[in-house]
Simulated scan of single mutants.
Amino acid sequence: MPVGAVASERIRVMTTILLCADTDVERVADQVESLTTLPLDPDRVRVVVYHVFRADGEGADAGKLKSVARAVEALEAAGFEVAVEQSNGDAVREILDAAEAFDADLLSLAGRRKSPAGKALFGSVAQQVSLRSDRPVLFCSPD
């Protein structure tokens, strides 16, 4: 194969972002905004909008959640390839497993306002994922 042919056949490198969406429309909108303002080539990025149901997910459909539907709409409008995935169970474990399963290059998480005592007593999914993940985490905190 001629050298020029190698240069013209570029490998399309895809970046996969796991956007961990809860049911709060505003928090998820902040996550979407944080992604759409990064210097990313939408043609080379796949965003997996991922929701974890805490209870048995039988019959549940993440795509029907307002937060997820709006995220998909905004990300597709920005030119990103988008998929919706879901699971049920312990949110921290499920998110970490999904990051591995989808070979995510970046995790997008949103935080909630909690006092330090509240975090100590009740924990924080975003905090635990960011501490346990071996992947980069983009953390969107509430205004």
Rank of each mutant, 00 (worst) to 15 (best):
T23Q: 13
E58S: 15
L35T: 02
E76C: 04
G123E: 03
E73M: 05
S87N: 06
N88D: 13
R46M: 09
A104D: 05
P136R: 08
R135T: 07
L65W: 03
A74P: 01
C20F: 02
V32I: 08
P39W: 03
D30R: 15
A104V: 03
A120M: 08
M1Y: 09
Q128L: 14
G59M: 07
V129R: 06
Q128R: 14
V82F: 12
V48A: 11
L138K: 10
V28S: 13
A74G: 06
V3N: 10
S67C: 00
D22S: 04
L131E: 11
L107C: 11
I11D: 13
Y50D: 05
E58V: 04
R12D: 10
G79I: 01
A98C: 02
T16V: 15
E100F: 06
V25N: 00
V92Q: 05
A98H: 00
M1P: 06
L35C: 02
Q86H: 12
D97Q: 10
G63D: 01
D134Q: 14
E33T: 11
V25Y: 01
V92E: 06
P39K: 12
G118F: 12
F53P: 01
V28Y: 07
G4H: 00
L96Y: 00
A99G: 15
R10D: 03
L138H: 08
G57S: 04
S133K: 14
